[in-house]
Amino acid sequence: MRKIDVFGGVAVGVANGLFGGGGGMVAVPVLKAGGRSAREAHATAIAVILPVSACSAAVYLLFSRVPFAIFLPVALGVTAGGFAGAELLSRVRSSLITLLFAVLMLAAGVRMLF
């Protein structure tokens, strides 16, 4: 077992549980360090996050922090969007998306902080 896998794994879990998302963003560089290409790391990150999200989601459910009236439409949208996104991954220039996404994250983050 390599150190970066274990420490990276702990960080993935903390982001996933505490922030309720973003574990994948932490997992991608960890998986790249394991010798995967960018695309492989992005795809494999989903396999890492799936069981971790199920675990965190169970705890959130237990503490009744998932309102089903909102969950249902969002989950339908997410699943449809996820299929489209998976098809797109092999076709788009990733640097453009990364940059666009960074701008959006910065704006949303600042908005939520203040």
Binding site: G21, A41, G77, V78, A80, G81, F83, G85, L89
Partner: peptide
């Protein structure tokens, strides 16, 4: 809610942090 989910889902399906987009959208 469906549209917010779809936007987050596209990024999530690409393994690019769907949650980090979906949560602030919501």
């Amino acid at each position: 809610f469906f549209l917010a989910g779809a936007a987050g889902g596209v990024l999530g399906g690409m393994g690019m942090g769907g949650g980090t987009a979906l949560i602030p959208l919501l």
